[in-house]
Design a protein around this nucleic acid. Structure first.
Lengths: 219, 219, 219, 219
DNA sequence: AATGAATGAGAATTCATTCAT
DNA sequence: GATGAATGAATTCTCATTCAT
């Protein structure tokens, strides 16, 4: 079965510092323009997060941004384009939130614990980011795949490094990485997104223990 | 953050087997009507699977079904309603495919292996089902939650039973169930949906081993 | 210099009887539909004739036709499409008006006289037709060329027949036909369109005499 | 039937040679300004010639001219105004090309031959000029009429002079002039614009012979 | 029940023109 | 004068839903 969904252009890897810079929309050349572009992106994040891609309208975005409708098209060619820019931006924000915490962990098992824990916290704080990335599956399939493939690849490398250091089983590979990613995402949805009162610490602990020791009964 | 997405009315639980029952369009009274309803559901499954909810149009569905546009409203009140009916139907199909296989397993670890394996096979055979259920997150949130909550609850009960039988760790609970579900779904996406050539047997084996024994290095 | 104007599909030669039938828009299948289609075409003729293609709006057309805006799209895919249908229709109307008159003429010189005379009368009665066909040069180039190439070709055949019958110079050919056509069109514009009081009979007589005898001074 | 098309203000007659004069944008006072104005006019000629008035955009013109969008309005009040300036300018260019050639002819018949011949050559060299003038019928009706009325009036005076000199029939008048103009324009379109390979010399010869001697069969 | 035409609210998008720098 | 961002009216087109037959 084919998949003729919109995919959008893959505009390279994005500049490093200001994630809203190069590659997204038409770059503003004045300070005023830069301000407007930022207002639009912020407004779009809120609109898409609250109403989803299809219910969000460009006029609602510009209304929220406090700009004229036409100004949107100064920076983006379409609703799809700003969505794509947003997915990339949020994917980077998530990575920037999680990465340092993970890297500070003493070993690989602890790293995965830290990763899940910080992810759960992030989801709870930024529900709209979770939503936007998830909806990309149906709006901008290429961005969606890029996000998860990138994320999982980072995780796979961590596993490989941990295995090399002898911290975890030596055969840990891609399948394990996808499995862990899926676990994290579902726990994020269930306990970060749906259940405002869930004990995130406990969830992360339980899941990490499952990961570390599996289901098998201990002697 | 609010969640004001359209969610559709949750029309009770509807009997499982009779396709004329609640949740699947207005019951037709003649044989001819029953045929039309079935044609519409089949056509909608293909359309939604191929183009997604928003790109699919009622007229495309009726065109594919070979019925008049107006006939659609003889059986469904809205586009959302047929989507909802479909989600429920596919959720049941998936369950009906997996359940007997899982139940035939000798113990809980084997059951989870069988569950993942049959899920991977099912996804590969019925990609549109995966898509429709997943898109429900953005079209009919209630159906989406119902599907996963039901699915995970079944899994939790299995874990509890397995624990009671002493096959797995005694503390296996809801968090474990969500973790396993997420793992399965992501592996289904990655290896069932995206990668037509993946070795599904190997994937299921690796994942089940992770589940059974965890990441920790074995003596 | 290229000519990337819209040209529209050339949908064959058009059915014979009802010029609004086959080939244009989506054919209505009910009597009611046929009425609506006709109302739209009539309204479009008036709008395009009065305001030109670009100033005319689809909503103005449907308002004048007394239909809903959306009904337009039941029969036409775009403003260009109805314009194209109209050009063809008007080209045929003009031909149907002129042809029998020309054919009744006793010889070729008289035929050209009758042709110009009836054309002048037609332009004066149906200014909007003249406008629509002329504007096609900038809206639907293919239709424009088709109209004139068809018209001139008919004229060329008349000249050839007249020459064969020995009524006019034997070398009369394509260039003569284009020359006569241009003459007719400009006289139509100047005396049919611009000058409501012009003596059309006199104009036709003078032009036909020029055609018949040229500029050269008579003995 | 009314004729409420936009026609633009007819800003007097404007001197002929100085491009800074009336009708061609607001007079720049510096050399730099004069250069910008010229660049805009050149760019507009190409854009209008290639895409027509409605498809051409101010931003495309300024982009091509290498100026800022806003600079356009330093020199012109509107899109219509630059179009009007262009029509006048091109009308003059055409006249300046044809007039000396016509005036060098020994008699009136030869003059019309030279006129058509040089017109055909000019059209082939400057297709965009033909297009712009022709489109004026639908953009700036006043300019369009002025162009043809002026052109035909010049021709009428030539005919009158030729008749006075006894070179052609004494009754040659306005109708003849419009007829000849139409002939020329259509031959220009057919053989100058559409048919890049046409033998322009032959066309001019055939048409001039028609003009000189008419259709009637010679003894 | 079936048919297919009619409806109209709603959305995206364009671009001439204005304005602040 | 030059620049380029901002503006917003206007337009086309879509499509779920309703209705007359």
């Amino acid at each position: 079965m084919e998949q003729p969904r919109s995919s959008g252009a893959d505009s390279g890897d994005g500049a490093a510092d200001d994630p809203r810079a190069g590659g997204r929309g038409k770059a503003p050349r004045t300070e005023r323009g830069r301000r407007t572009l930022r207002k639009l992106l912020d407004a779009a994040a809120v609109e898409f997060g609250e109403h989803g891609f299809h219910e969000a309208s460009i006029s609602a975005i510009t209304r929220r941004a406090g700009t004229a409708l036409g100004s949107f098209y100064t920076y983006f060619d379409s609703k799809e384009e700003i969505f794509q820019a947003l997915v990339r931006y949020m994917s980077e924000q998530l990575r920037d939130h999680v990465t340092p915490i993970v890297q500070a962990a003493p070993d690989e098992i602890a790293a995965e614990h830290a990763g899940l824990h910080s992810f759960l916290g992030f989801v709870r704080e930024h529900k709209e980011i979770y939503r936007i990335i998830d909806e990309a599956e149906f709006v901008d399939y290429a961005s969606y795949r890029r996000h998860y493939e990138t994320t999982v690849e980072r995780m796979r490398q961590r596993l490989a490094a941990g295995a090399a250091r002898g911290e975890i089983r030596p055969d840990a590979g891609e399948v394990h990485a996808w499995a862990i990613a899926g676990m994290n995402v579902f726990l994020g949805m269930r306990y970060g997104l749906w259940d405002a009162d869930a004990d995130i610490d406990a969830v992360a602990r339980i899941a990490n223990d499952l990961l570390a020791n599996g289901l098998a009964k201990k002697g």
